[in-house]
Structures are given as structure tokens and as C-alpha cells.
Amino acid sequence: MSKGKQTVKATTPIVAGYYRDVSRFSDACGAATAAGHQPEAFTPWPVHGLETKLGIPRSTLGRPVLAVILVGFALGLHLCWYTQYQDYPLNVGGKPYFAWQTFVVVIMETGLLLGALANMGIALHLCRLLPDPNTRLINDRITDDTFALVLPIMAGKDAEGLSTWLREQGAEEIQVLGVAETAAAEEPVHA
């Protein structure tokens, strides 16, 4: 990333370059990052290696989910101890009121169930996913066969220059979105 990185807001105008060739698209992503364009990429399927080229860090999903699983184990253990020993000790064939081996299934299932729910919830939060009946993408083919490389039009850059740069990187189609004079003719931007 270049020095003096500027913040890209949701309202920042963008130039989108569309690709069908995944290799060319992947190379363009690397070039955009190297040139300090602060690119965002949209792909119909996961492209491996792209995260390195775009400088995307590893997902932070692992540790919170592990923590929830461990807390779930503790809650399961506590449930067993409280209900079977503390609150309602029931003599079953003279066996001990509390023996952790008896409760392995309850403890494991509680921890893993909470872990699965946390995994879903945290992943949806990280991806900012919520039910939305009116979702519109900058291009509907992004979920089909088209890759989009999106460059924000930051201070000191212009749409024309970025479009030319994308064309040089092999973009098959270019679209400028969110610029005052063109915005009226376009569909809502959801990028």
C-alpha cells in the first residue's frame, strides 16, 4: 500500500473493470495493489491466491469460535454439576452424584452446538450479511461468470485515468459508478 492511504467510503465513486479470464483478473488485482489503487475484488467463486495479491489478511474467525466452544464446554459442565449435584441430587443406583465421565456427551454437544452457532453468527457479521430483499450488485454477472476489480476514485485520481489503467490490465468492460454526472443513469451501487 502506498503512503498516505485514503479512506474509501461507501459513497466514494468507483471505476469497475470486468474480466472473464480468472488469470488475467488475478494478475490485475496484484498490479492494482502494487500501484496503490486500494482495489476491491468481487468474484463468482473463491479464487485462491487472490487474498495474497490484494493484501487481505487471514480470517479472524478461528479464535472467537474456539473460545465459544470452550465456554460451551464450561457451560455444559456447569449445567451438569448444578442440576445433578447442587440443585437436584438424584441417587441413581448408588452412583456418584457428579462424575465428569458421565457427562462427556452433554458437555461435548453443548460446546460444539454453541461453536457452530457462533461460527455462523461471526461469519455473517464479518461479511456484513443480513437479509435484504432489495440487494443490487454493480453487475449481476458477478455471481455468475464475471470478475470485478473495483478501484475507488480518490483525490488526485480521475475516472478516465483509472479506466485506461484497467484497460491496460486486460479489463474487458469498464463501468464508472457514483460520479455525479453519470450516477443518475445507473442502478444503485451496492459495492
Binding site: 487481505i56 450479511l129 437479509p131 455471481t143
Partner: peptide, 17 residues
């Protein structure tokens, strides 16, 4: 679809999850 857009960052979280 919960507003899925296929953003590269999202795919990283998605695959991990």
C-alpha cells in the same frame, strides 16, 4: 442470499467458516 456480493474479503471468511 443475505446480501452476498462475492467480495474477495468475504470469500476469505466464508471459506474459513
Amino acid at each position: 442470499a443475505l446480501g452476498w456480493r462475492g467480495k474477495a474479503n468475504d470469500w476469505v471468511h466464508y471459506e474459513r467458516a
